[in-house]
Amino acid sequence: MAEFSWEARSPLERALVSEPYGVQGEAGVALTEIRNFDLVQVMARRGKASEMATAAKGHFGVAAPETPKAVRTADATLIWSGPDQFFVLSKGGRQSVKSLVPIFAASASLSDQSHARVLISISGDKARALLAKLSSIDLYPAAFPVGAVAATSMDHTSVTLWRGNDAPGGRAVFNVLVFATFAESLWQTMLDSGAEYGIEIGHSEELA
């Protein structure tokens, strides 16, 4: 009988090479894969949106987003993913699907997406220039401020895009959640798009 390994691995394990890419010199863009996170999709059952909102507020201490926004809680980020639904993104099992099931038992359906998505963080002076090649979303600072979210498509692939807190020095940080099986394709497209700016590539265990 075949032996299976159920060890969690990144879908970008092969494609991600932690060395400079594109033009040499100071990199204009940093591409960082964030690994090992918990991601739970919470979707209100029919007619239960108010109950879901109450349960979320009671559990997280802040209201879950009802418009395309990302909201920080003490130990998670709540990211709008569509009408009456949002993601709970956290680290270290603090908001795992197991712990959230009792909270939303009467109001929402949960789906564990921890290993179904890849999380890519894009920052640097040329981050907007790179994303402008892939996305039709207006990422001008005033149009897409910190906490803004878009459920959109990049390179014909559905993604959840949001702007995290600025990095030290005030540089914008954009996060992209993409389906695991599309991640390598989108990653290669990002490398092609950013090559002219020079890319610093890495992976991290820290949520931005």
Partner: peptide
């Protein structure tokens, strides 16, 4: 408009 049943708790 959201189609019937689209889930429309809040509209932008």
């Amino acid at each position: 408009e959201p189609a019937a049943g689209a889930g429309a708790r809040q509209v932008v």
